[in-house]
Write a protein that binds this DNA or RNA. Structure first.
Lengths: 204, 204, 204, 204
DNA sequence: TATGAATGAGCCTTCATTCAT
DNA sequence: AATGAATGAAGGCTCATTCAT
């Protein structure tokens, strides 16, 4: 009986923390709410993670994001195909509303209101992601590019992707029927690829 | 005499609020800090604006953003030129670090953590902006486009622009020498236009 | 009506703090208890003093101790008479149970468990007291003494005085009828003077 | 085997408790810190001693203090010599910074902030100590003395001795080079004896 | 009109203790 | 016999708001 509740309080806390951090940001989240959802005592957070920050740090892991990059890099499709595929998978991860991809939402929140954990996120997840995309951009462009231009192309792609997550509250208000179901996400991903590929070919 | 002092306090509060909201977001901002910067009493916010939310609502105005759209629309340059010019002005407004364009920073924060004021922002500023950009996109594309595609092109452009503001903390960490001075902002704006225009021409 | 309760919350807090700090020490005292006794809100301490430490700092003032030294120094009695008089006044201040001399009790507690406020106490009250007593000892001894010996004589006198305060819980337990009434305090002071004066005359 | 391990844990806890209680007082000490130093589980204290208070009670033993009294009493030196020797040994025990005489430090702390264990301390250690010193004082004085005067002489001697321990934080602040090394302690003990003996001879 | 003072709800954290094994 | 996990009460502090003038 302790199996279900006792030995994985820690895991439940992490899961609840991801939910609450994703919904309210680090600052807006309260330890009490996290513990309430995890059906744990308020003191449990400090017992298991030392502090609210410790819990945030633990809640951030980017295995799925890394797996996605590995999968893309080990593919032998053409660069364009791989970029297209990556965007698709990335958007599925980013917008899928009811799976465990809350790390991305937490990440997005960190950007708006950085906490000390941002350093970890940058080093472990964002910097590698940018580098990965930089390599892909160069392959697609198939042309000598200055580093600054590569970087800006990466920003253009990521900016488009993240917009759908960051601006979701706004888009929803302007278009109340909007729902990120599978079909919609695929259409979005296709658009981003269609929009970006000609640009990559054309950039000076 | 009291009038002007009173009005001045009010104005100083609004200005201070813009600063603090832009820096820390609505939630992270404290009424005390705002009043301290405005050299006003703690109770002044509630006295003049009813609540912290009331002050936020008052602090949000988008005259400059609207002026920018009007200027663009009344221009008789080619659609491509006008889009290019708008992006430039928009980025100058968005990234300029020491002018009064804090509304955009506040807006960006609202997206990440919507407060009740978001409705006002959407209706008064964002929706018109999207419509404005939609018209411009259609002119540039010079082709029959489905509404959904127009919308997504607008998102692609805005997403690229906002990325530099939203992700600033991250970009700064990855590239510590990054500074949004005039020259850098112009280069960014040029890149976004160069990236987007071929895409607009190519979109199905 | 606000007169009694409203405008001197601050003063009531200081008074209550002296009580509670004297009873339980800084660490053992709780802000809530202090506020309860002062009939004030928990937040009042932080409003008026910034923190529990700020309140402690404010609660410590040594006017009476200083006045006592001045009075002794401006007397034109013989050195022995002045030392005797000082000890008497000091003990009256130290042991008087129901007056405002709680500063000495707070001071005694600080010695046992120093908080950051101890520095202030030392600089403002204890160091001057030691110097004052040092001068008096030299006058009484009427002989060239090494600084270290003067210091130790001061310690011997102060040690005897403070013992009655510091060890009060123990003495009370061993001698349940013990009460520091006026007569008892005078007897104690006389004893300390009688004990110390021959020693001062005799020290090498 | 378990026995020894168990007993060892118990013993390590008591030793660690003495350290921590001596350093931070009963209230300031935390069970966690004690267990950490004893390399034991947090629950060990309650398991072995029932509570933090139980541990304190166990940690208090006064064998060395008693041994010291016995040694003094069985000596056949003159009363003055014996008092002088006792003060020396007592100060060595009281001020020696790195030996196991922490009981005295704990005792001193108890005086400042009595816990229920104080009763035990008084009955087992302090009362006998006072009686022992009372006998010695009477021998030194070699004169009929009233009980109250004997008591006060004992207080005068103990007060001088304890001052160096109780006021150590203050003395250190006023005289940063102060260190209780062997030589310093001997000088202190000599001073206290030199100060007290003439007084004892002179007391009415 | 405007403000210094005060409030109450809530936050993160700490701690001695207890529980289940 | 012993422990890792968990708990509940409490602590200092912060904050938007309200009160009395």
């Amino acid at each position: 009986m302790m199996d279900t509740a006792g030995e994985n309080t820690r895991a439940r806390l992490v899961e609840a923390a991801r939910e609450v951090f994703a919904e309210h940001g680090f600052q807006g989240a309260t330890v009490r709410e996290i513990c309430r959802r995890a059906d744990a005592n308020v003191a449990a957070v400090n017992y298991h993670f030392g502090s609210k920050h410790g819990l945030l740090s633990e809640a951030l892991n980017f295995n799925r994001l890394k797996a996605l990059q590995s999968a893309t890099e080990s593919s032998d499709a053409s660069p364009e195909e791989r970029l297209r595929a990556f965007i698709m998978d990335f958007m599925l991860m980013l917008l899928d509303e009811d799976n465990a991809s809350r790390q991305c939402q937490m990440m997005a929140r960190e950007l708006a209101d950085p906490s000390p954990a941002l350093d970890k996120i940058v080093v472990e997840a964002i910097a590698p992601l940018h580098e990965f995309l930089g390599r892909l951009v160069k392959e697609v462009a198939a042309r000598k590019m200055m580093d600054a231009d590569v970087r800006r192309c990466v920003y253009s792609i990521l900016g488009q992707c993240l917009f759908y997550r960051n601006s979701h509250p706004v888009l929803q208000r302007m278009n109340p029927t909007l729902h990120y179901d599978r079909k919609e996400i695929e259409a979005i991903a296709r658009h981003i690829a269609d929009f970006s590929l000609p640009a990559l070919r054309a950039v000076k």
